[in-house]
Amino acid sequence: MPYDHLHRPRTARRPLALALTVLASAALLAGCGDGQAAQPGGHTPGKGGGTTGPRTTGGPTAPGDPSPSATATATTAGAGPLAGRTVVIDPGHNPGNFRHTSEINQKVDIGTGRKECDTTGTSTNAGYTEAFFTLDVSHRLRDLLTARGATVVLTHDADRPWGPCIDERARIGNKAHADAVVSVHADGSGTGNRGYHVILPALVKEGSADTTAIVGPSRELGRNIVAEFRRATGTAPSNYIGSGTGLDVRSDLGGLNLSTVPKVFVECGNMRDPEDARLLTSAAWRQKAALGLADGIETYLEG
């Protein structure tokens, strides 16, 4: 659950910031944005991870607390169907956000108003955090896309103490002139609420936000991801958001409002539902999820 992307009433999500970084190591984390508000039965700021599983206060250690500012570095591949294309992957939340609540609670401009920099994200009841989930899936997705020739940029790689904030996440995609941006998340809704959904930008033209040029392309990107995610994972679209379409439109997410390139948020499943949690904590299923995202992105980019 991206904080910025906090849905109308959701459950378990705190303001957290996303960081920008190099798509580095090929090693995949065993666990896997935008500050968002909860939607019906979704994540809400202020809820943290459990007491077991990967520690959300983990993350890279370094002398002092370096500034969360960073320079995006891309991993570029050679030949392949996506050669010459740039994709930005935005892993929802940063494992270090739990230790930097004052920083991630500071509000930033999202065009339509001001919102917390980010949230901590949600977790399964057993303590497997969204921040670890999103990073793991993002690494898998990066590897699949670079193998297909794309240049891939990560907004962060848990290489900074917290963040980046939701507005910075948007700027990273804009600065990269990305052909597509996908923000990876997992929801924190109630038991019985299952399935994935893709959040699309609403038509917003207010303050520093103007999504006029990206609403159409982002919807096409979202539709392709919905179809390919279902094919790759065998799971169904959300039974509690989107009326079975797997699509949801939001005007309250800074990461979407401030984007000038096609961008969507993907809630891969509901971490608070036991059945969905079983899938989300499976490395084999996370690989399928990454494949679904990669196939959806490729289908979109190939027109």
Rank of each mutant, 00 (worst) to 15 (best):
Y3H: 07
H7Q: 08
R10L: 07
T11Y: 11
A12W: 12
R13C: 09
A17S: 12
L23M: 12
L29G: 02
C32K: 11
C32I: 07
D34V: 11
G41Y: 09
G42L: 05
G46K: 01
G59E: 07
G59P: 04
P60F: 14
S69Y: 15
A74P: 05
T75L: 15
P81F: 01
G84T: 06
V87A: 08
N94P: 12
T101K: 02
T101R: 02
S102K: 05
S102D: 15
E103Y: 01
N105Q: 13
D109P: 00
I110R: 11
T112G: 06
R114H: 13
R114F: 13
K115H: 04
T119E: 13
T134E: 01
H139I: 14
T151N: 09
L154P: 00
D157K: 14
P161G: 09
C165I: 02
C165G: 13
I166C: 13
A170G: 11
R171T: 14
H177L: 06
A178L: 10
A178S: 08
D179V: 10
A180T: 09
S183F: 00
H185Q: 12
S189F: 09
G190N: 10
G190M: 04
R194K: 14
G195R: 01
I199F: 02
P201L: 05
A202K: 06
V204C: 04
D210M: 04
A213P: 01
G216A: 15
E220F: 04
G222Y: 02
F229Y: 14
R230H: 09
G234F: 08
S238I: 05
R250M: 08
D252P: 00
D252I: 07
L256E: 12
L256D: 10
T260P: 00
P262T: 10
K263I: 11
F265I: 15
M271C: 01
D273K: 12
D273H: 10
P274F: 07
A289S: 09
L291N: 06
G292V: 02
Y300F: 15
